[in-house]
Design a protein around this nucleic acid. Structure first.
Lengths: 234, 234
DNA sequence: GCAAAAGTGTTAGGTGTACACCCATGA
DNA sequence: TCATGGGTGTACACCTAACACTTTTGC
């Protein structure tokens, strides 16, 4: 809900999608924001979004926004619906009901600037305290981040932040960055490698980074983590 | 998304709410369904729902449907958004984006019939295998039920299925009915009463039902259950 | 007393946490 | 050789599941 039809206060209800695109950039959980080039909230940073077209599926609209406004292909992002925000007044242009989608990807590229967009960049979440987001996007962002944090506990979602092949420490790094905690390396290794369906062991090793080379893994077939990996220490 | 404006295929996108109202009736997890009196799907059973009005909040619309179509006041139901369904073609009347809300309540009364409704009644979930629901409501119902089942694990949501004062066995009955399992009475008692914020002990006892009278409790102040009560046995 | 339901005790086995320790590499 | 990160072993605390047992009622 950021660009597209730019009338003033429409008499009809319009449906939009907002995207919370999350990735890890230099070990920091970061979100893609665009700087608005139109009223309302011109110049403010906002989540990428757009109105859905008649006959368009919600997910398709989300992928469209991802490629139009964020210049990110649909390749290798995990897209998931988070919640719908529809309180009248959240958008000064009229009654807009917006379905929030969370998109997670491995080290996504820098965005090209799309239309109606003054700028687009990745923001580490930790830098956002100082920024006032447009609309109710601070709330929308929070709900997505909290969703991502809690889904790491009981699903294999963390692997979507990593390239196809990765080491256990990289995986641990995902948990540590998203949760903002530190985890015991040994215990994490055991838990990750022993949890059925989480990791598939490869016969290759990563280039050493000053220590013993780490074995490479790829994502396993499972989607849920039993037992879960809980946030309160490991 | 069941009644109200009854035009044929609208050119605009319309927003609706669908309600999954769940309660326990004679120990069986049951859902409120209405029998449609209009095309499409005339005669079929469906979730109560309705289009939202311009300027109306999603939650307000959900409460309105609750009182109009289900003749249930807003008193003592827990209302929670589940997911939004917007695939074109899910409603033959046009492009309808529907926000699903789950409503949980304690032994809710029999519904009065509302407008545009041939009949309305509670259906035990176990009786629904044989019934084909209108629209994509089977999917919508499933997602709500799964949400309810999993939220019992890590929140205090179970108490919303009970009257203000209840016994530990009644609470255990909620878990057993919703999960379709049996739980060890002794272990459940300990866990429920020791989990901080879950239960508040009263100084009164329920009328005995053939055994030692059970102490009465009311819901505690907490909303999350740590540690969680997991489904795989207790 | 007996049956039934509430509630407590007990114990064996599993899981998580902390941390010591060994392994494999580059410098 | 040392430093560094990868990976394993181990002990202890805690939690859970199973089930025996006590308490308190109605009949």
């Amino acid at each position: 809900m950021a660009a597209s039809p730019s009338e003033t206060t429409s008499p009809e209800i319009r449906v939009a999608v907002d995207l919370i695109v999350l990735t890890l950039r230099e070990g920091a959980l970061s979100v893609l924001l665009i700087q608005r080039d139109d009223e309302p909230h011109r110049g403010a940073w906002a989540l990428p979004g757009g109105f859905i077209a008649h006959g368009e599926d919600l997910e398709d609209a989300a992928y469209r926004v991802l490629s139009d406004e964020a210049s990110l292909g649909s390749g290798a992002v995990h897209l998931e619906q988070v919640r719908t925000f529809g309180t009248p007044g959240r958008d000064p242009r009229g009654h807009v009901v917006s379905v929030a989608f969370m998109a997670l990807g491995a080290d996504l590229p820098d965005p090209r600037r799309g239309e109606d967009v003054a700028d687009a960049r990745w923001w580490p979440l930790s830098d956002l305290c100082a920024v006032t987001l447009a609309f109710d996007h601070a709330t929308v962002l929070d709900s997505a981040v909290e969703r991502a944090r809690s889904k790491l506990e009981y699903t294999t979602l963390a692997v979507t932040f990593l390239p196809e092949e990765f080491t256990v420490s990289q995986l641990r790094g995902v948990y540590e960055s998203v949760w903002g905690t530190t985890l015991d390396a040994g215990n994490f290794h055991r838990k990750a490698t022993r949890t059925e369906g989480f990791l598939e062991e490869l016969d290759r090793y990563a280039a050493p980074t000053g220590g013993r080379p780490a074995r490479l893994y790829r994502a396993g077939a499972g989607t849920s983590l039993v037992p879960p990996l809980l946030r309160s220490g490991d």
